Simulated assay, not measured.
Amino acid sequence: MTKPPRFDLPDIRLFIAVAEAGSLSRGAATLPLALSAASARLRQMEERLGLSLFDRHASGVRLTRAGDTLLEHARRIARAASDAQTAMDALVSPERVALSLWANTTANSTILPAALGRYLAEHPYLDMVLVERTSREVIDAVVRGEADIGVIDSDYQPEGLTLLPLGRYRLTVLAAADHPLAAQSACSFRALTEHALVGMPEDSSMQRFVDKMAHLAGLPLHVRARAPSFAAIARLVAGGAGVAVVPESTGQGYRDAMGLVLVNISDDWASRELQLCVQRWETLTPAVRALAGYLAGVD
Results as ranks from 00 to 15, higher is better:
Ser36Trp: 08
Ser59Phe: 13
Ser39Cys: 02
Val61Asn: 06
Ser59Trp: 11
Ser23Tyr: 00
Ala28Lys: 00
Ala17Pro: 00
Gln44Lys: 15
Gly27Phe: 07
Phe15Asp: 05
Asp11Tyr: 03
Leu49Thr: 06
Ile12Cys: 10
Ser25Phe: 01
Pro4Ala: 14
Gly27Asp: 09
Glu20Pro: 03
Ala40Ser: 14
Lys3Met: 12
Ser36Asp: 14
Leu53Ala: 11
Ala21Gly: 03
Glu46Trp: 04
Glu47Cys: 02
Leu31Gln: 12
Leu35Phe: 13
Gly22Ile: 05
Leu53Ser: 11
Leu33Gln: 09
Ala19Leu: 04
Asp55Ser: 01
Asp8Phe: 02
Arg13Ile: 09
Leu51Gln: 15
Arg43Ser: 14
Met45Leu: 13
Ala17Ser: 09
Gly50Cys: 05
Leu14Gly: 09
Pro10Asn: 08
Val18Phe: 04
Phe54Cys: 00
Ser36Gln: 13
Ser52Glu: 14
Leu53Tyr: 14
Gly60Asp: 11
Ile16Leu: 06
Thr30Phe: 01
Ser52Val: 10
Gln44Ile: 11
Val61Ala: 01
Ala21Ser: 15
Ser39Asn: 08
Ala21Arg: 11
Pro32Ala: 09
Ser59Arg: 15
His57Glu: 15
Arg41Cys: 05
Leu35Cys: 03
Phe54Lys: 06
Leu33Phe: 01
Ala19His: 09
Val18Asp: 07
Leu31Glu: 08
Arg26Ser: 07
Pro32Asp: 10
Thr30Trp: 04
Phe7Gly: 11
Arg48Gly: 02
Leu42Pro: 03
Leu24Lys: 06
Ser25Arg: 14
Leu49Ser: 07
Leu14Arg: 05
Asp55Phe: 01
Pro5Lys: 05
Gly22Gln: 04
Arg43Cys: 02
Gly50Phe: 02
Leu14Ala: 07
Ala37Thr: 08
Ala58Ser: 14
Thr30Pro: 01
Thr2Glu: 12
Ile16Pro: 02
Ala21Lys: 09
Phe7Trp: 13
Leu14Asp: 08
His57Gln: 15
Leu31Cys: 05
Val61Gly: 03
Thr30Tyr: 02
Val18Thr: 07
Phe15Trp: 09
Arg6Ala: 14
Ser36Ile: 10
Ala19Val: 06
Asp11Glu: 12
Arg6Val: 12
Ala29Trp: 02
Leu53Pro: 07
Asp8Ile: 00
Arg41Glu: 12
Asp11Ser: 10
Arg6His: 10
Pro5Leu: 09
Phe15Ser: 06
Arg43Gln: 14
Ala58Met: 06
Thr2Val: 13
